[in-house]
């Protein structure tokens, strides 16, 4: 599979490294034409307000919306989850509404409250950085991982959303969940 990583701002390079480690080809997405021919898309962590700003200026809103609503696999992490949620609080801001969850920006507090922990259900490493909390999970949304009982990774159809940063660890579980592994011939074709 060829997976795009939205590269307007944030931790896009780390996602590309993780995707490459599980055999996917990647492409950085900065303009609408970069979406052509992609099989999936990652919205990385960073500052959601910065990304919204640049999405507006590059006229990327409609192309990104079409891409994700076409049903292709999409991974939203941290700021990406904020962009894709139904509702955003603290403060409220515009979002695409692909994933039926409500999120609270910086829900765990400022940077000094950022933390590492272990997931309740899958037991993988969780790295939270000024992360959003998920305040509501819609009926069609499956909770895949929790921390102290609170949902931190969810799935709805082809969309996976994580409040934490799997791209900053060696654990590729979330990326594999979003973009099912490929066979060797695909992996060989993935040299960029």
């Amino acid at each position: 599979m060829k997976i795009g990583v939205l590269a307007l701002q944030g931790a896009f390079a780390a996602h590309a490294d993780t995707l490459a480690s599980i055999g996917h080809a990647t492409r950085e997405v900065r303009v609408a034409a970069d979406l052509d021919g992609l099989d999936g898309l990652v919205f990385p962590g960073g500052e959601s307000s910065t990304m919204l700003n640049l999405i507006g200026r590059a006229e990327l809103w409609a192309p990104l919306d079409r891409f994700v609503r076409s049903g292709r696999p999409t991974l939203l992490t941290c700021a990406g989850l904020i962009l894709g949620a139904t509702n955003v609080a603290n403060p409220s801001q515009e979002s695409f509404g692909w994933l039926d969850v409500d999120v609270v920006r910086n829900g765990w507090g400022r940077q000094v409250h950022s933390f590492e922990a272990t997931g309740d259900l899958l037991g993988g490493p969780l790295v939270f950085i000024r992360a959003p909390t998920i305040a509501r999970v819609g009926e069609t949304v499956e909770t895949v991982e929790t921390f102290e009982g609170a949902p931190v990774m969810v799935r709805q159809g082809a969309i996976v959303g994580a409040a934490y940063h799997p791209e900053l660890t060696d654990d590729a579980t979330v990326h594999k969940l979003a973009f099912p592994a490929v066979d060797r011939s695909d992996a060989a074709a993935s040299e960029v």
Partner: peptide, 20 residues
């Protein structure tokens, strides 16, 4: 829960990449 680890510190720096 481990707060303010080196990973979370460098992690915030990672999140600021490509920004001003």
């Amino acid at each position: 829960m481990d707060k303010a680890t080196f990973k979370t510190k460098v992690g915030l720096a990672e999140m600021m990449k490509g920004g001003v």
